[in-house]
Amino acid sequence: MDEKDFEMLSILNETRNITRAAERLYITQSALSKRIKAIEKELDMEILIRSRQGIRFTPAGEKVLEHSTTAAREMKLLRTHLETMNEEICGTLNLGVSINFALYKLPDILGEYHEKYPKVNLQITTGQSRDLYRQMLDGSLDIAIIRGEYSWDGIQYLVSQENICLVFNEEYETTPLSDYPYISHKTDMTQSAMITRWIHDQNLNPRTNGICVDSVTACVEMVKRGLGWGLLPEIALEHFHGCQKPCTFANGEPFIRRTYIYCQREAQKLPQIEAFMEILRNNRF
């Protein structure tokens, strides 16, 4: 077995289908089936069971898959370490970035990084912070920029913190919040709990005919058009020209949102990752 076989087994595990796996590998179904049989002959063990519903791994196949996944990871780590032996910074930056940070801050950072280190291969994943956190836990990402509070035993430091603001169109400046709709947006459970706490502190009971959108950007646009009020992080308000007021809780505590950098311990000393973290430290958010 070799690295191509590791990739093949991984894709078979993902698709559970010979046809789709062959398409992903850019080979014929016949060629894929022959390679599976060759592995089974080499190991003297059946690793796959085929049916009309697709394929599934036998117990022996599951063990082969487990070890091939580990071997593939070790080969990737070996290549990464070999790349760092060069004087010029290169290799792969496997980075996860929360959607809002990616939208409002990442382009300038990546522009500076790519200009300084053009030989680094940038692999960027954007998504909800909770999903990126899970990918950090399972080792799918080397480094991630995540908003919110998560438990992490690797490398972590604060990138920025910002106010959560009450925002509304100027035409509603003298109108009680209870008299027009609250525009909510999807966020993680911790942030949702903080928003609920602030609303409760204000003795508000948002109208049942409020608006719920799936992103901060959509919420900003709704507020701009006077459709209601929202609670939004400062990162999204650079070009918002309506009313915005930093929120505090009833006890005087400011309502803030923190952004952190998370890094795997074994990836910390990779030059391409050290260089990226240095750029983050030198930027003010």
Score class of each variant (00 low, 15 high):
H239Q: 14
C219Q: 08
C219A: 15
G230D: 06
Q202L: 06
P246C: 12
A236P: 11
L231D: 03
P246E: 11
P246N: 12
H185E: 04
T187K: 03
W229Q: 10
S215W: 02
H239C: 01
C243Q: 13
N203H: 14
P246I: 11
W229T: 03
G210N: 10
Y182S: 01
K224F: 02
F249N: 05
L237I: 04
L232I: 15
R207L: 13
L232A: 08
G226A: 06
H200I: 06
Q244G: 03
Q191A: 10
R197A: 12
A236C: 11
R207Q: 14
M189V: 13
S215I: 00
V223Q: 05
N205E: 11
R197K: 15
D214Q: 08
V223E: 03
A193W: 01
Q191C: 09
Q244L: 14
K224G: 01
K245R: 13
I195H: 07
C219Y: 00
D201W: 04
T190S: 13
P206Y: 02
H239R: 12
A193E: 10
F240G: 03
K224I: 01
K186I: 07
E238C: 05
H185V: 01
H185S: 08
L204P: 05
C219N: 06
V213W: 08
S184I: 02
T217E: 10
M222D: 00
H239I: 03
V220K: 01
A236I: 10
H185Q: 07
N205Q: 11
S192N: 08
L204I: 09
K186Q: 12
R225M: 11
K224R: 12
D214G: 04
I235G: 03
V223K: 09
W198G: 02
D214T: 05
T208P: 01
R207Y: 02
P246T: 08
G242S: 08
P233E: 13
G242P: 07
E234S: 15
L232D: 02
N205L: 09
T248S: 14
T190W: 11
H239P: 00
L204W: 02
D214L: 03
S192V: 00
L232R: 06
T248N: 10
G210R: 07
Y182Q: 04
N209W: 04
S215C: 08
I195M: 14
T187F: 04
G228I: 07
L232W: 05
C212M: 10
S192M: 09
P233Y: 10
W229L: 12
I235F: 03
H241Q: 13
V223D: 07
F240T: 12
I211A: 03
N209P: 00
E238D: 11
N203K: 14
C243T: 13
G228D: 10
C243K: 15
C247P: 04
S184H: 04
E221G: 00
K245V: 15
I235A: 14
C212A: 09
G228C: 06
V220R: 01
Q244R: 15
I235Y: 04
G230W: 01
C212V: 14
G228L: 07
A193C: 00
A193Y: 05
Q202D: 00
Q202K: 11
K224M: 08
M194G: 02
I199G: 01
